[in-house]
Amino acid sequence: MTMQKVKQMWARYRVFLLIAAAVILIVLPLLGFKNSTIRIFCRILMYTTLAGSLNITNGYSGQMSLGHAGFFCVGAYTMAILATRFGISFWLLMPLAGIAAALIGLVVAVPTLRMKGLYLSIITLGASEVIRIIALNWQSLTGGSFGIKDIPRPAILSFEVDSPSKFYYVFLAVAVLFLFVSRRVLNSRVGRGWISIRENELAAKSLGIQTSSAKLTNFMYGAFWAGICGAVYAPYVQYIDSAVFSLDEGFNILSMVIIGGQGTLVGPVVGAVVVNGLTEVLRPIGEWRFVMYGALIIVMMWLRPQGLMGASDNVLAGGKIKAVKKTRRLSAGVQK
C-alpha cells in the first residue's frame, strides 16, 4: 500500500521533484562542505553508476555476476596507462575505457552463455580475480604492485578538473547519463528481451528471442559503464594499484545492488547512498562496520529480499508463492 502511495506521489509531482533534485545536486558542492564531505558525494555518485550497471546484468537479465570489480579495473587501467604513456585526452579515453571493459566483458560472457546461476557467478568471480592478478603481475604494462601514479587530470580547454568539487560534476554527469540511457534501453525492445530472460528463459526462447546474443549485449552494456567509472576514478585518485579492485570491491558493489533493490533503476541509487552513508556513520567503530554490513544483508534477505526499492510482486522478491495464492483466490471467486 505504502509503496503504491509513493508511486502515486511520484507520478503526480514527478517534474517538480526531478527539477528540485537537479537543483540540489547541482548546488551541493557550492554550499561550502569540507573536501572530505564532497569526496563522499563523489563516492556515492560513482557507486550509483557502478551498482546501477551491475544491476543491469544481475537485476534485469537475471545473470548473477560477481565480477564487476574486474571491469572497473579494466576501465581504470585503460585510462591510467594510455593517459600517462601517450597523453591521450581524458574525454577520448573515457569511451575507449568503456569499450575496453565491454570487450573484456565479451570474453568473460562467451563461456558463461550456457551456464546459469551459481556456475555463472563462479566464472565471473574467477574472471574478476584473473583481471586483478594480471594487473598485479604484468609489471611492464601496469607497474605491478607499485601501481600507476601521476595520472593526469582531465581538462576542458584550459580549465582543469582538479578538485573533488569539480570531479563531483564529472561523476554526476556520468551517473545522470547512465540513468537516462538505461531508462531508454530498459523501456524498449532490447530491455524487454533482457527482462524476459530473467522471468522465463524457456518462454523467451520459444518466442524467438535470441537469448545468447541478448545476454552478451546485456553483459557488455553493464561492463561498459563499469569501465567508464574506472576511467573517471583513475584521474580522480591519481594513483591506482591492483589492490583497489579486489573481490571485496566486487561484493561492495553487489551489496549496494541487493540492499537498494535489484531490477529497479532507482534501487542502486538508494543502495549507493545507504551503503556509503553507513560507511561514514559507522567509521568510528572501524573494521566492525563490516560485521554490520553482513548483518544488514542477512536481515535484508530475510525481511525484504527484493531490496529497499524493489517491488514485492517480482521474481526477485521470491514472490512466486504469493502470486500463486492470489491466483487461487481469484479463480475460486470466479467459480462461485
Binding site: I195, E199, N200, L202, S206, A323
Partner: peptide, 13 residues
C-alpha cells in the same frame, strides 16, 4: 509458435 502444457508466462509482467 507454441504454448506449454504448464503455462510458461512471464508471471510478473
Amino acid at each position: 509458435s507454441r504454448t506449454f502444457q504448464s503455462t510458461q508466462l512471464f508471471q510478473f509482467m
